[in-house]
Design a protein around this nucleic acid. Structure first.
Lengths: 208, 208, 208, 208
DNA sequence: TATGAATGAGGCTTCATTCAT
DNA sequence: TATGAATGAAGCCTCATTCAT
C-alpha cells in the first residue's frame, strides 16, 4: 500500500529470505543510528547481523538499497506515529511521549529515531531517490493531519475548514519535526518543561 | 568567551593564517552542503579552496577538526539568525524569509543551511564534541529568546514572566527548527501558504 | 585414443551423468563465448544450464575443469572443421562459409567460435594443461592436412610429396587461423571480397 | 596522429607523470602477458610497477583504461610491424623473424605479443570500445598494405591494381595473423620449416 | 540427486594523511 | 609556505566453492 515503484519482478520471497532481509534491516538500522548512513560500513552491518558481508548481497543489490529501505521503513513509522498522534485523546501528552522515545538511542525497530530522521532529511537534499521517498511520506502525513483537522468533531475530528486545516497541519508538522530536532540536540530536556510548554499552546492551535 | 574549550595553546594566528583558515572553511562549507560531512573528501575541499590537499593540514590537524569548525561556525550563525529574528519588527515575515534562505543551496557562508543544520544535529547524537558545541549554542539561543520575551514591551520585548518565557522560547525554537526540517524536506513549499499558516499562529504565541 | 591423459579412474558415467555434463558444457560454452573464460561466472553457467551452482560441482571439480573441457571440445570441433575442409569439393567456398560461421555469435555448440578459439590460444601461452591439449589438437590437424595433401589425386588427395605437404599444411593452417582472427576483428567483412581473395590464391597453393 | 577521440581535456602531462604512466603501462603489459587481461589484478600491476595500487589511480581512472591503453599501444606496434614488413627487402625472412619474436614471452614493450594480440581480438568481440580501437587499427593496416602493393615497382612497391591490392592485402593480413596464432599455439615450431613454407608461397603472392 | 544459502578470499577503488621537494 | 605524489587502510562488492538440508 505504501510501497511504490517496485511492484515489478518482486518474486514472492521465501520465509527464510524475508527473515534474513529483516535481520539485515534491523542490523542496518542499529548501525545507521550508531554511526550514520555513510559512516556505517557493510562490515559493521554484517557483524551486527551476524552474517558475512557477502551474504547481504543476496538480499540487497547494494548499500544504497539498504539505506533506502531503512528510509522507507522510517517514513512508514513516521506516518504511523502521526496517525497515533491524531488519534490520541491527549495530543499534548502524546507529543511528550514521542519526544521521550525519540531522544533515546532506539532499542526497537518499530520506532522512529531522531538522528535517522534528521540525516534522512538532509540526504533528501542530495539524493533524488531519497527526496522522492520523503516527498511521498510528507504527502501522506499532511493528508493524515488535514483529514483529522477537517473531520467533524462528532467523528473525533476538529471540524476545521479545508483551508484552515491545510495551514494548521503545516504548523503541526513543524512542531513535531521541531521536537525531533530537539530530541537530537537536547535529549535530556526536562519533560515537564516540555509538557508545560506544549500544554498551553497546542490546545489553542487545535480548538479553533 | 564565545569560543570555548580551546583557548589554550591557541597561538596568535597571523593575518595570512586567518585568511587561509577562512578560505578552507568556506570551501568546506560548500562541499559539506553539497555532499554531506562524510561524502565530501579532502580533495573536494582542496579543490574548492583552490589549494593543495596537503596545505590544509597546516591549518587543521585533520578532517574532523574542519567538520567541528564548520559546526561551530554554523551554530554561531544560527545564534545570529535567532537574534535577528527576535529583533525583527515582523516576526512572521522574518520566519518566512529564513525558510526561503534555508531551502536554497546556500550561496552565502553567512547563512545557515538546512541540510548542514540537520546533519549537525544528527551528529550531536554520536559525537560528544559536537554534542557539547550544540549544547552550548542551544543555551545561548534559549537565553536570547528568553531575554527578548521577558524584556518589557517598552524596551522592544514582550513582557512575559520568566517562567512563561522559558516555555514559550522552547515552542519558538521547535517552530524554527521545524521550519529547517521543512526546508530540507520540502524546499519548494508555497511561501504564501507558510506565511498564512504562521501569521495566524505566531502573533498569538507572542502576545500573551 | 582421442581422449588422452585421463583414462585412469574415469568411472563409467551413467547416462544421466553424461547428459548433465553435456548440459553444463553447453551452458558454459554459451557463457564463455558471451563473456570470456574469466568473466563468465559459475552463477552464469548454472543459470544457463538451468540448474543450481552447487550441482555443477558434482560433475566437475572446479571451474578450471570446465574451461579445460570446453577447450578440449573446441579442439575436437576444430579438427572436424579441418577434416570437412579437406574433404570439401570447393575448398575456397568452404573457407568462406567457415568464416561466415565463425564471425557469428555461435548459435550451435557443434561449431568453432572465433573468440573462444583465440582466447584458448592465448591461454595456451600460460597454462601448461591447455598448451598440452592444444599441442595434441595441432598435431592431429597437421596430420589430417598432410594426409590429404600427400594422398594421390585419384584418391581425392593432392598428390604432394611428404616434404611439400608438411610445408603447405603449415601455410593452410596459418590461413585458416588467420581467418579466425579476421572473424573476431572484422566480423562484418564483405564475404565476396573474401571469396575473391581466396579464390585467386588457394587453388594455386593446392595444385602444386 | 593515431590517438583518436580523446583530444579534449588532455592536460599537458608533466615529465614525471609521463614516466609514471609509462611505468604503469609497462608493468601492466607484463602482467597482461603473464596472466591475461582479466586475471591480472591491479595489485599485480602495482607490484610490477613497484608502487602502491592506489597510486595507479592518479594516472588512470580504472583498470579498463589501462587495458584500453595497452590495446591501443599494441595496435600501434602492430601497425609499425606491418610497416616494417612491407618495407623489408626480404618479406619472407621478415615474417620468420616476426614469428620468432611473437613466440617469445616478450621482454620488450616495443614488440607485439601474440597472446595479447589474440586476447585483444577476442575482447573485440565483447567490448565495443575495444572493437572500435581494433577497427581503427585494422583500417590503418589494410591501408598500409594496399599502399605498398599498389605502389609502382620503381618506388619500392609491387605495382598491383587497386582491386588486386585489396584482395591480396587481405590474404597477407590473414597469413600474418595466422602466424600470430601459430606463435601462441606452437611457440617452438621449427623456424626452418616455417621459412621453407613461406619462401615458396609468399613470393608468388607478391609478384603478381 | 539437487538446492541455494553461506562463506572467505580477493578484486577494484577511494581517501585521509604524510612527506620529499 | 606550498605542492601533489605516494601510501595504506578501508570500503564496496563479486565469486568460486562448500555444505546443510
Amino acid at each position: 500500500m505504501s510501497k511504490h515503484e517496485k511492484s515489478i519482478e518482486e518474486a514472492p520471497l521465501s520465509r527464510r529470505a524475508r527473515e534474513q532481509r529483516e535481520r539485515i534491516l534491523s542490523a542496518a538500522q542499529q548501525c545507521f543510528v550508531k554511526y550514520g548512513f555513510h559512516a556505517a560500513s557493510m562490515a559493521n552491518i554484517a557483524e551486527a547481523a551476524e552474517m558475512s558481508a557477502g551474504l547481504i548481497y543476496r538480499y540487497f543489490p547494494n548499500k544504497s538499497a539498504i539505506v533506502l529501505a531503512i528510509i522507507e521503513q522510517q517514513t512508514e513509522i513516521e506516518l504511523e506515529d502521526i496517525r497515533a498522534l491524531s488519534a490520541s485523546t491527549d495530543f499534548t501528552e502524546a507529543l511528550v511521549e514521542a519526544f521521550a522515545i525519540w531522544s533515546k538511542p532506539t532499542p526497537d525497530m518499530r520506532m522512529m529515531n531522531a538522528a535517522l530522521f534528521l540525516e534522512t532529511s538532509a540526504e533528501a537534499t542530495r539524493d533524488p531517490q531519497v527526496a522522492e521517498a520523503i516527498q511521498h511520506a510528507d504527502d501522506l502525513c499532511f493528508a493524515e493531519f488535514r483529514a483529522w483537522l477537517a473531520r467533524p468533531r462528532e467523528q473525533g475530528g476538529v471540524g476545521m475548514t479545508a483551508a484552515l486545516s491545510e495551514r494548521r497541519s503545516l504548523v503541526f508538522l513543524c512542531m513535531i519535526e521541531g521536537l525531533a530536532v530537539r530530541a537530537a540536540r537536547d535529549p535530556s530536556m526536562d519533560l515537564d518543561l516540555l509538557r508545560g510548554a506544549l500544554a498551553e499552546v497546542m490546545p489553542r492551535l487545535i480548538e479553533e
